[in-house]
Design a protein around this nucleic acid. Structure first.
Length: 803
RNA sequence: GCCCAAGUGGCGGAAUAGGUAGACGCACAGGUCUCAAAAACCUGCGGAGAAAUCCAUACCGGUUCGAUUCCGGUCUUGGGCACCA
């Protein structure tokens, strides 16, 4: 049983005061102070409630919000709910209830838990993506995209499970079988909506340059967009004068080394060119590949499977006949769905050629026998390009191809258009009507929001279509006397999270997505904190929508999130990921009751660097609580209060000023663990001090209150202050009081530590040397040796090189 | 297979424009107080050695007066992936 302060009483008291006073309300129309917008990735309100991992990022953003308030910023610190999603739909099928009901209940539970942590969110700005007043504007953005021809319909394969009668997410498919029930899953082509994110590929790539984001995330986005500059080369087919196909290559310089070509199994040309003798084999291969999911196709990476089509292509550069294969390592969705294979200079082609006994032809000098040579070097067997390096050879060969009319430069991207429709109920309805004559009717802005109809049952339709096909009344529409059916596909969960940071700024506006003046003032987000698992998808989609809204004039900055930080994961005490199945999930509710929210916040920030994944330790939490008890004792027990003084004895001058400097700098860099360790050192010093200078003691409470707001507020009030601590001023420090007169110099002989000496700061090198050579241990270690050199690093070290 | 991180005491970690390795905390041990225990406080705490000293930041090399930090290679763990031509 802990005998420290009564955290439960203190927490209840301040929670009520903050709520009653709307302490953290942000007047977004107040432009008199500089703005600071600090944002958390909003949570999906799952049925499990919060776990200890959630508050790590929230505490970090809260510390920043609290510091910036004291520093005089107008701080926008909102939270909301990413409320559409698969688990709610699955649960509603099970319970045959509208998913809104328990989504609402989950939100209430999450909200209560979040409030118990004392996060300084402005609840006036709360939004939920499943709220019609919110998704009205998600639909509005979609319509704008449709208007600009960025949304289009096409057929795409999906995971369809005939037994369940539904389309499955990749996550729900395990080894080609449905996760639920283990039924067969097939690839079925279905009508889908896509967003043309590829139109923004260059803008998305260029925008990365100005962002204060983790390098690894920038790198991942860059690789995801995957811009590569290469060429397309047209190959004619032997015996078919009218048929040809394009290959895409980034190594057109190796064209003379091409010994076969390869088409993707779905390539439309295949039907026309496969010879009779090989038809059966190719069909069988295509069939096999279609049963593999895209994920499986990628997994099998050792065997390069494929079959010969019987057809030959003509290499345009030298008119050589090369066999045409079909292989699933070639993807229809990238480049042109066909490759020219150069086994000697591409590792994948190398492996395929080995397995299928195909020819190798070196076009760059090298001695490698068991792998492809991919480095630069003088070309051989390459006509005009002989003797040239890769860059020169590319230019020469491309020039020749252009003259022959069968090649040109081509920029390719890995990025594909975004498959934007889901055959689900619990998502934003796509505001389109498909008229009986096949034409599309987009809803008018005045017809938004298009609200999800209630259904009798939420079960899958059986055909793979959305359960919305059951809403007959909602489905059938007549416009100007013509009949049509509403689109039954809904939007993916990403949609609502693509622009929520915009809505927080003006969440109650029912006239427009947000007042332009306010959006211009508050965007971009100054600091965005969330998990690294969103490094690509969410963060790329949100940037895409933002750039579109910029082009539409809705927002005036080109990037939504100026600075990004990924908090790490909190692992179970055994170092494994926390999960229900492992039984190592730690519930924060009980910890708050037992140790208090402040202790939990403090511990999570002290565990280690914010970005690191760290194992949970309940003993560590006890240590954090012990520290807070010590702090509280100093501010509440007579023994210490008697030492408080309005006169500075200068005892704590260094300790305090150094503390303020370090904490201010570390907070700014989100290095909370080292800031806290300095706060611990300060309290250790306070314990030893004879006199406690009141302004220092108050300054410390302000620093502490960012991490531990309940205790901070309580102590600040106990010191006699009527106002809350939240909007006071941030402590300042005096650089002069941190400067030291003396420094300790380490002394090395041949790089090994042999002593140390305290001297005046900035002492002259010669004076220092004189002192050093009088030291016993140095005399001992240098006698019988010849001094070769003495290296002096100012105020740090002396190294004597002696042989 | 590719890409990106990271490997430091019993544990979480600290220290890198190259300069006294182990701050701060946890755990543990000893002590004070107590009839006793808990709490609190004090002391110790990388390994070897009596000591001098030696060894030690995943491993092997290199650069340097000096390397946890820089370079090359290897191994391990974590994260990401769309075989990207």
């Amino acid at each position: 049983m802990n005998m420290g302060y009564n955290h439960q009483q203190i927490e209840q008291k301040w929670k009520k005061i903050w709520e009653d006073n709307k302490t953290y309300y942000c007047d977004t129309k107040d432009f008199s102070k500089p703005k600071y917008y600090v944002l958390d990735m909003f949570p999906y309100p799952s049925g499990q409630g919060l776990h200890v991992g959630h508050p790590e990022g929230y505490t970090a953003s809260d510390i920043m919000a609290r510091m910036k308030r004291m520093q005089g910023y107008n701080v926008l610190h909102p939270i909301g709910w990413d409320a559409f999603g698969l688990p709610a739909e699955q649960y509603s099928i099970k319970m045959n209830q509208h998913p809104y009901n328990f989504t609402k209940a989950n939100i209430e539970r999450f909200k209560k838990q979040i409030q118990s942590f004392g996060f300084s969110y402005d609840w006036d700005k709360e939004i939920a993506t499943c709220d019609p007043s919110y998704y009205k504007w998600t639909q509005w953005i979609f319509l704008k995209m449709y208007e600009k021809k960025l949304a289009y319909i096409d057929f795409r394969p999906v995971n369809f499970c005939p037994a369940l009668g539904t389309v499955l997410a990749n996550e729900e498919v395990i080894d080609g079988k449905s996760e639920v029930g283990g039924f067969e899953v097939i690839r079925k082509s279905m009508r889908q909506w896509l967003l043309k994110i590829t139109d923004y590929a260059d803008k998305l790539l260029d925008g990365l340059d100005d962002l204060d984001w983790p390098n690894s995330t920038l790198e991942m986005q860059k690789n995801w967009i995957g811009k590569s500059i290469g060429a397309i080369v047209n190959f004619k087919i032997k015996g078919h004068d009218d048929l040809s196909f394009d290959v895409f290559t980034t190594r057109v310089d190796t064209l003379y080394g091409c010994s076969y070509t390869c088409l993707a199994p779905e390539h439309p040309l295949l039907d026309k060119i496969v010879t009779k003798e090989h038809l059966e084999e190719v069909k069988k291969y295509q069939e096999e590949v279609l049963h593999k999911s895209e994920l499986d196709r990628q997994k099998v990476n050792k065997d390069k499977t494929g079959v010969f089509t019987g057809a030959y292509a003509i290499n345009p550069i030298n008119n050589e006949e090369v066999p045409i294969y079909v292989a699933d390592y070639v993807l229809l969705s990238y480049g042109s769905g066909a490759v020219m294979a150069v086994p000697s200079h591409d590792q994948r082609d190398f492996e395929f050629a080995k397995q299928h006994n195909l020819k190798f032809k070196k076009v760059i000098e090298n001695d490698l026998v068991d792998q492809a040579y991919v480095d630069d070097g003088p070309h051989i067997n390459s006509g005009l390009a002989n003797g040239k390096n890769i860059q020169q050879a590319k230019e020469i060969i491309l020039e020749e191809l252009k003259k022959l009319g069968c090649g040109k430069e081509k920029i390719s991207y890995k990025l594909r258009d975004w498959l934007f429709s889901r055959q689900r109920y619990w998502g934003e309805p796509i505001p389109m009507i498909i008229m009986d004559d096949g034409s599309l009717y987009p809803l008018h802005e005045s017809e938004l929001p298009l609200v999800l109809p209630e259904l009798d049952e939420y079960k899958p339709s059986g055909t793979g279509e959305s359960p919305l096909v059951h809403a007959k009344q909602w489905l059938n529409v007549v416009i100007d006397g013509k009949h049509g059916l509403r689109e039954t596909n809904t939007m993916p969960q990403w949609a609502g999270s693509c622009w929520y940071y915009i809505r927080y700024i003006d969440p109650h506006n029912d006239k427009e997505i947000g007042d332009k003046k306010l959006l211009d003032h508050w965007l971009p987000v100054d600091l965005y904190i969330g998990g690294a698992e969103h490094a690509v998808l969410h963060l790329l989609y949100a940037r895409f929508w933002h750039k579109f809204l910029y082009d539409e004039g809705v927002v005036s900055c080109k990037e939504p999130f100026k600075k990004l930080f990924h908090q790490g994961m909190i692992l179970g005490s055994n170092g494994e990921k926390m999960s229900k199945s492992r039984g190592n999930v730690v519930n924060p509710d009980e910890l708050i009751i037992q140790y208090g929210a402040d202790a939990l916040r403090l511990y999570e920030m002290f565990m280690g660097p914010l970005e690191a994944s760290l194992p949970w330790s309940s003993q560590g939490l006890e240590g954090a609580r012990r520290y807070l008890d010590r702090v509280y004792r100093i501010y509440s027990e007579k023994e210490y209060l008697d030492k408080f003084s309005d006169e500075n004895s200068h005892e704590l001058d260094f300790s305090y000023n150094f503390l303020v400097k370090k904490v201010t700098q570390d907070f700014e860099k989100l290095q909370f663990n080292t800031a806290i360790s300095q706060m611990m050192i300060f309290i250790n010093d306070v314990y030893k001090a004879k006199s406690l200078y009141r302004p220092y003691m108050e300054g410390f409470v302000k620093l502490l209150s960012c991490i531990c707001p309940f205790l901070g507020e309580e102590i600040y009030q106990s010191l006699g202050h009527k106002e809350l601590i939240d909007y006071t001023s941030w402590p300042i420090y005096d650089e002069n009081l941190i400067k030291l007169d003396n420094v300790t110099i380490a002394i090395q002989v041949n790089g090994k530590l042999r002593g140390s000496v305290e001297v005046k700061k900035d002492i002259e090198d010669d004076d220092l040397k004189e002192i050093v050579f009088k030291l016993d241990s140095i005399i001992k270690h240098t006698k019988d040796k010849q001094i070769k050199k003495v290296i002096v690093v100012k105020n740090k070290i002396v190294n004597i090189v002696a042989i």
